[in-house]
Amino acid sequence: MMRGSTVTIITRKRTGTDPGGDPVWAETEEQVDDVLIQSGSQADSTDSTRPAGISVERTLHMPRKWEYHSLRGCRVRLPDGIEYSVVGDPIPYDGGLTPTRWNLTVDLHDERG
């Protein structure tokens, strides 16, 4: 039987404004169990100002039991402690397909170095 890992979804929400009228933000963290983590592509940076830079992609498969909400603008911390940015605003599979316990594919991206 396949079993996923636990990841942390980090969401930033506006909580008000400061005395100067600028927005004030707070982060919330949500742990999700049984997430499948798929390795993706890695590439060296082509930017001459970052000779040691790399681009890393990952894909998550979220479990059906997770109560869906928009992941636009979120970050995800994987079990190794590395945080990735969510690409776009993924939505769950539709159409009554139920072959597995997972129904949402989330693409992640990170730049390092």
Rank of each mutant, 00 (worst) to 15 (best):
L104C: 10
P92C: 12
T6D: 04
R12C: 14
D44L: 11
L78S: 05
Y93Q: 11
T105M: 09
V35W: 00
D107F: 08
G20W: 07
D47T: 15
V87N: 05
T11N: 09
G113T: 11
M1N: 06
T8A: 11
I82A: 06
E30W: 01
T6Y: 00
P92F: 13
L60I: 12
S5K: 14
D94G: 14
N103M: 02
V35D: 02
G96D: 02
L60R: 02
V106I: 07
T6N: 01
S70F: 12
V24Y: 00
E83C: 12
T6G: 01
D94K: 08
L97I: 02
E29Q: 14
D47F: 06
Y93N: 13
G21P: 12
E30L: 13
R72P: 09
D44W: 08
E29I: 03
N103K: 00
P51F: 05
D94P: 07
W25E: 03
R75W: 10
G21S: 08
A52H: 08
P92G: 13
R58Y: 12
Q42F: 10
G16V: 09
P63L: 12
L108Y: 02
T15Q: 06
V56T: 14
I9R: 01
Y84Q: 09
Y68I: 10
I10F: 08
E27P: 14
I82E: 13
L78R: 04
T100N: 14
G16Q: 09
W25G: 03
I54R: 15
S5W: 03
G40T: 08
G4R: 03
E30N: 05
G16P: 15
S85V: 02
E111I: 10
G4F: 04
E111K: 14
A26W: 00
W102C: 11
V32E: 05
K65G: 07
N103T: 02
S55G: 11
E29R: 15
D18W: 08
R3G: 13
V87R: 14
R64F: 04
L60Y: 08
Y93R: 07
E111H: 09
T28N: 05
L104Y: 03
L104N: 06
M2P: 14
Y84K: 00
V35N: 01
S39D: 13
Q31F: 03
L104A: 10
